[in-house]
Design a protein around this nucleic acid. Sequence first.
DNA 1: CACATACATTTGTATATACAAATATTGTTT
DNA 2: AAACAATATTTGTATATACAAATGTATGTG
Lengths: 148, 148
Amino acid sequence: MNVEEIIKTSKEIPLEPRTLIHMQLVHNKINETMNSALKPFEVSLQQFNVLRILRGQKGQPANLSTLNERMVTKMSNTTRLVDKLLIKGFVDRAVCPSNRRKVEIVITESGLKALEQMDASLEKAHEEIYQNFNTEDLEKLNELLDKF
Amino acid sequence: MNVEEIIKTSKEIPLEPRTLIHMQLVHNKINETMNSALKPFEVSLQQFNVLRILRGQKGQPANLSTLNERMVTKMSNTTRLVDKLLIKGFVDRAVCPSNRRKVEIVITESGLKALEQMDASLEKAHEEIYQNFNTEDLEKLNELLDKF
DNA sequence: CACATACATTTGTATATACAAATATTGTTT
DNA sequence: AAACAATATTTGTATATACAAATGTATGTG
């Protein structure tokens, strides 16, 4: 990926802003790849993220605030995100009996099955995304990202 | 930045997905910082981006396809983006005389002045974002990002 | 136990973005 | 020149996201 070529500029950009642009371009590319990997399942990255969190609960229900807390990208509206998963039948929702302010959300069998297929599709996306990386590169990258 | 802590997970995540999550978290953080740096001027990052491209034209007008080509994040709707800059008086728009399908967009004096202030504000954002980085880190990071 | 306060979620609304179709202009072909 | 294709932008519409206000429930205090 050549930054200057992609944004069609001839002059070289100072390191600080260049890094920000670079990050943005990589982010766009990753997003595109992952979204198209999820396209066949008609779920967004956010919805996929929620399903993964719910699976991690191993049967235990999660409420909206828990979901929001664990989501990579915080959304201001988790209710409507869950609504969409509900329509697809990937989750169930019920009012929490011990505290009726809360809602309990669990992933359904159908959701788990779909999630498995999504995982496989994302595995392929990983191969595509990381084709130029070795383990050492990835470790170094994670180390540098920690500095942010 | 500790990935596991932010998304509140106890188990460790494999390197490949972890890197993607890490990238997303850093992207969110950068975005937040930059947007709040631009908030006083009531322009979005995209709008700022367009203004910068127009300044780079050094008086020469740019048409919509040129803008779209040079934008970091491609937008499906540059027309409405420019509309908003027009309302703020930061750009002028005119039909191209030699090819009336095209529109010529230029940055105004007022736009240039505002842009200078935005630059100063973003300089401060850089300091905040890069406080843990040295030049070597940034060079290494750019090198690794090129692998995507 | 009435009251205020805190909590968890939902709803309303404004704005942003994505995608497709429509419009207007220009260039090309016969 | 009429017909068609190509180009540049605009418009329509559906969906996504951000933010604030509203709703319903629980908890603590006098």
